[in-house]
Nucleic acid binder design. Structure first.
Length: 280
DNA sequence: CTCCTGTCCTGCCGGC
DNA sequence: TGCCGGCAGGACAGGA
């Protein structure tokens, strides 16, 4: 499922394909995804896409009309580029087609339909209801130990739940939450407000490190961020703990035969993976 | 406020 | 083999 690094990689691919291009036509195959498609979507013909950027897990495409198109990939969303002259083979769950005047097509495919598309005035993007409450970007300066310590103060919720809270910090999904806590050596069941200052510092560094490494892996494993089939942004990861229940964890002194290796628990109806030896 | 649960949706997998 | 229940999960809405 796309988390921040995947969304970042998709953005870079879309930027290459779409920045500076004019939209010829927007084709919609249904009424909407998680929310209805905005009325203005089909009237974007002639608009020029200025750039493609990202805020949290949202893809932002500012246009020369003063509007910005907002895209979210949800759980199962994919973007597929069909270059000019290439044959477009329609697939099940192709919900939105962006056809450019230069012949390039971008297809938004999303089986589970947890994704969304919206349009908002570019000047007010941060005021949009989806953005107004969001915490800082994990890779920017505003997200530091002082900030996180302040946000965690007094919180009784589990630390894993807290770092997935978009009001605290954006972009950390279920996979990277487990990965970051493993790297920081912190038990995911610890109460957020009970973390000591050095642990908060380790956690900030770990969140940054796992996200950066994944972005790097995404960028380097794809040619121009586009796979040969045109799909953007998905790449092979090597998780340390995610999905590895019972397996020994890398770089840890635990004896998997004795400790059961990596444990799987459920927090907030989401799977969490951790090593009870390394993570305290 | 903070915390917790329900909701959306389809593909996939295990059990019978 | 086929059916079916259960699970997976981002993130909001709304209730306690």
């Amino acid at each position: 499922m796309p988390e921040l690094p995947e969304v970042e990689t998709v953005c870079r691919g879309l930027e290459k394909a779409l920045a500076g291009q004019k939209i010829a036509e927007v084709r919609l195959n249904r009424k909407g995804l998680r929310i209805p498609f905005p009325a203005g979507l089909k009237r974007l013909g002639g608009a020029k896409i200025l750039s493609v950027g990202r805020r949290a897990k949202y893809i932002l495409m500012p246009l020369d009309t003063g509007q910005t198109v907002i895209l979210h990939l949800g759980m199962s969303g994919r973007m597929v580029i069909t270059p000019e002259g290439a044959h477009y083979a329609p697939e099940k769950h192709d919900h939105m087609l962006l056809r450019m005047k230069n012949g390039t097509q971008v297809t938004f495919n999303d089986p589970r339909r947890f994704g969304l598309v919206d349009i908002t005035p570019t000047n007010d993007v941060e005021k949009h209801r989806l953005f107004s409450h969001l915490g800082p970007e994990p890779l920017e300066k505003a997200f530091d130990a002082d900030f996180l310590a302040e946000k965690l103060k007094g919180r009784k919720t589990d630390i894993k739940i807290a770092i997935m809270d978009q009001k605290i910090v954006v972009g950390v999904g279920n996979i990277y939450a487990s990965e970051a806590l493993f790297r920081a050596g912190i038990d995911p069941r610890r109460k957020a407000g009970a973390l000591k200052r050095p642990e908060v510092e380790k956690l900030v560094a770990a969140i940054r490190a796992v996200l950066k490494a994944a972005i790097k892996a995404g960028g380097s494993s794809l040619r121009d961020y586009v796979q040969t089939d045109g799909e953007l942004g998905y790449f092979q990861h090597r998780w340390a703990v995610y999905g590895k229940e019972g397996k020994p964890c890398k770089g840890c002194t635990c004896d998997a035969a004795k400790t059961g290796g990596i444990h799987r628990i459920v927090q907030g109806a989401r799977a969490t993976f951790f090593c009870p030896v390394k993570q305290k």
